[in-house]
Nucleic acid binder design. Structure first.
Length: 489
RNA sequence: GGCGCGAUAGCAAAUCGGUUAUGCAGUGGAUUGCAAAUCCAUUUAGCCCAGUUCGACUCUGGGUCGCGCCUCCA
């Protein structure tokens, strides 16, 4: 049985869906005013993995990941750029999709945008007001009366007293309690019409926390199974979501809260405010997207993950071992593969791959046990390596099939091994134009032919010279029983 | 200051109260014209101090260090 670490309980718990065989899951997505960084990549990949595992476990999953397309920072950035909110957000939504696609992240079933759900949000504010949990302040903002909600702090383990004790200097505000948070922000002079909506409390726009409560209940119901997000959202965002949803609907909001750990740089949280972030597209210039995905999945989702070139290089080496194992047997399976690809069939569609897993096999059972234990992907990946060893030891096609199928559950290893192994090089990517020519595939193949000829005539000095020259350009030659193949170092 | 998380070999990273994690790197061997890849063997562990136990890296208590949240943040 699947166990999930539930932040609400601070413990691993058996996962029991509300409706048999159905899982409804919501994850806090991006605020789209800039490119996604590696921290965002982690959320996307981690919950994509959760989504895949739930589906592989036989659940009918509805996965929602929202897009925040109205907020202070978006307004500010649009003004700086002298462009409309919509143009700005659409641009970064497109960019986000490109990044997610590259990382092998499946699209959620719904990607609601805050601006599309303003009526539902206003309805919620009205309900909260009716329940005595919201009030309009003198400045026009509608706030949530935190002290009226019993159980405020149950997710983050904070009490209102503790929060007040550690309070920082607060700017003058019209809130009844400094910890009250805004549900509806009144419109200010000079703001574009684009950021104003009519409401019975006057023109304005929604506070940040409100969108998730409104969209969650609209798309998944008032009570659903899993809610995820980065650990930094635990407080205040998720705490406030609970206050809003449970305050409005008078029933339990979410059963299992999941929070992923941070990506770090030099042992510090990667974040916009610290400025120590790397965007996904920046990293993808240097590293294969699957290496990045593997790098993320190789650590447990709740642990911190240190980013550095060394760690990415390490991940690349490890993934190379896996693909090398696959390559060694694809030689045997060549007739079938060639037939399939000659008919234009996509070689790497990962949907349906899970159907190929033989779950009775002992490796698959270890893999399943690991995944069922709060999504222990490092352990699951270790099983993949044991399987690779089995493949290499016995040239086992069955083991290779199983390896690819299990890895597919994690969204890994679905490409043609050769394509991965001969993909863009890290080490020599920025060398001279001459090296670019040397690394051209036609040139490589010609050199391989020349070397084979040299070997035939026992001219080993020439054969070695060619090997050395290619190696200096980052190309490794491998003589196998099936002939000479090459890969990038 | 309040609350919480973590500390595993050269690097990264899991499990587990007693039996090989795993990947990279290192060493020895097999294989190879030479290599690479691969296989076999192997060296490096569990922050410190107490306690529980026949036995603790694993449980309990204390300490030290690191990190996070308490303000926008994935």
């Amino acid at each position: 049985m699947l166990k999930i670490y539930n932040t609400l309980a601070r413990d691993k718990q058996d996962f029991k869906p509300i409706e048999p065989n159905k899982v409804r899951m919501y994850v806090c997505g991006m605020t789209v005013y800039d490119y996604c960084h590696l921290g965002h990549a982690r959320v996307m990949v981690v919950f994509d993995m959760v989504y895949r595992w739930l589906k592989a476990s036989g659940y009918d999953v509805t996965y929602v990941r929202n897009i925040t397309d109205i907020d202070d920072k978006i307004i500010k950035r649009a003004a700086e750029n002298k462009e409309s909110i919509h143009t700005l957000t659409q641009r970064f939504i497109d960019a986000m999709h490109e990044d997610a696609d590259a990382l092998g992240v499946q699209r959620p079933d719904h990607e609601p945008r805050a601006t599309q759900f303003v009526p539902q949000m206003l309805e919620m504010v009205a309900q909260l007001e009716k329940n005595g949990l919201a009030y309009q302040a003198a400045d026009g903002d509608v706030n949530y009366a935190v002290r009226k909600f019993e159980g405020y702090g149950k997710l983050s383990g904070k009490s209102l007293e503790d929060l007040r004790a550690g309070e920082r200097v607060e700017v003058a505000s019209d809130k009844n309690d400094p910890l009250d948070f805004v549900l509806w922000k009144h419109a200010k002079d000079g703001e574009a019409d684009e950021v104003k909506w009519d409401s019975k409390w006057g023109k304005g726009r929604p506070g940040w926390h409100l969108e998730c409560s409104a969209m969650g209940s609209e798309l998944l119901g008032k009570h659903f199974d899993i809610h995820g997000g980065g650990a930094d959202l635990q407080f205040p965002h998720h705490e406030n979501e609970i206050a809003q949803s449970e305050g409005a609907h008078q029933c339990q909001y979410v059963n299992y809260w999941m929070h992923n750990g941070f990506v770090r740089v030099d042992n510090e949280k990667m974040s916009k405010s610290l400025g120590n972030f790397f965007t996904i597209r920046e990293v993808l210039k240097k590293y294969d997207a699957e290496v990045v995905r593997f790098f993320i999945l190789r650590a447990h989702y709740r642990s911190p993950l240190n980013y550095s070139d060394q760690h990415l290089d390490d991940a690349k080496g490890a993934l190379t071992r896996l693909y090398t194992a696959l390559k060694s047997t694809s030689v045997r399976a060549e007739p079938v593969e060639a037939h399939e690809s000659s008919q234009g069939r996509s070689p790497s569609t990962d949907s349906g791959r899970t159907g190929l897993v033989d779950w009775n096999d002992s490796y698959a059972q270890r893999f399943k046990a690991a995944m069922d234990d709060d999504f222990n992907t490092p352990e699951a990946v270790a099983v993949l390596f044991d399987l690779a060893n089995e493949v290499n030891r016995n040239q086992s096609v069955e083991a290779a099939t199983q390896l690819k199928a299990l890895a597919g559950v994690l969204g890994l290893l679905q490409r043609d091994p050769q394509a991965f192994l001969q993909g863009k090089s890290v080490a020599v990517v920025s060398s001279s134009a001459e090296a670019e020519i040397v690394r051209g595939e036609e040139y490589i193949n010609a050199q391989i032919e020349a070397r084979i000829a040299a070997k035939k005539s026992k001219n080993f000095a020439e054969a070695d010279r060619i090997r050395k020259e290619l190696l200096e350009a980052g190309i490794v030659l491998e003589d196998t029983a099936a002939g000479t193949t090459w890969r990038r170092a």
